[in-house]
Design a protein around this nucleic acid. Structure first.
Ligand code: FES
Ligand code: FES
Lengths: 144, 144
DNA sequence: ATCTATTCGGATATTTTTGTCCTATTTGTT
DNA sequence: AACAAATAGGACAAAAATATCCGAATAGAT
């Protein structure tokens, strides 16, 4: 469904958000350990999220990654997915036609579109805060 | 969402079904042309579908691919997807945890599961016949 | 029997995704 | 100023997905 890069990006964002609530910056190393991802690859993805303005990075000693505490509840899953995987999962045809078009639909268009729209709605209405709180309260997990 | 292989597999199956209603066998070449897919790669996918008993192949002159006319309405999209992409799209965790488990869920589990279940339901309740008829009646398309 | 049209299957090539390594740059501490 | 700890970024490597090539096997037509 999502690329590995996107999975790592989502999990990393959740972990960063969690720490940002306590005004703690987290290092790449800590993130990779927590979400069980390859460190250098995770670094690339985090750079991507930084460039997209979703997370913030601070170089040097005591540096690391953080998210503006007051922005966490307004960051939607869709922003992260879009930054990393692009919008094909929302907009693209399920059978790979060049464009998903009502006037030139593929055979699964109607049925597929409703699933895709539900996915889109879910991603656009789920924010980082909810997800972080599930980790904090221990009802959800980021690895294994 | 689906792999290229799976997209080609679905489109090929629809085209074969369409012709099988008229008791016409179709060649690899004709299929690849119709669904706009690379010929040799498509051959691999068709072999896969043959091995999975979803379509039938006949070698030699006047050979080609076909589907038992009376089976078309009972072949579900899920069978094709499962044969090519496996069941990870139904069963796997959206964030890549080893298993999607109610007792050890990832942060998006609940929200993701309902989307995935809708996709699963759709694939399990959509049969080849419906899809083929949409092509026959000209309301849907297999390429561009 | 031979020829031709076709699928089958193994080997190989290309592209994309995933992952690694190393150096440069930044920033706080001493 | 020197050092240490961190991210940034380019180059490279490995793995997986996608795609191509070619000979073998099969089966109908002549
Ligand atoms: S055209 Fe294929 S999903 Fe819309
Ligand atoms: S555990 Fe992640 S989707 Fe179920």
């Amino acid at each position: 469904m999502f690329s590995k890069a996107c999975e790592y990006g989502i999990k990393a964002s959740i972990f960063i958000a969690l720490n940002s609530y306590e005004s703690k910056r987290v290092s790449l190393k800590a993130i990779a350990k927590e979400i069980n991802s390859p460190e250098a690859f995770t670094a690339k993805i985090l750079q991507d999220l930084v460039r997209n303005g979703i997370i913030k990075s601070v170089k040097g000693a005591y540096g690391g990654f953080e998210i503006d505490k007051y922005a966490i509840s307004s960051i939607k899953l869709s922003q992260i997915v879009n930054a990393i995987d692009g919008d094909n999962i929302y907009k693209g045809c399920g059978l790979g036609l060049n464009t998903c078009d009502e006037n030139h639909p593929c055979p699964v268009h109607d049925k597929f579109k409703s699933v895709r729209d539900e996915l889109k709605h879910m991603l656009e209405h789920t924010n980082l805060e909810e997800l972080a709180l599930d980790i904090k309260s221990g009802v959800a997990f980021l690895k294994t």
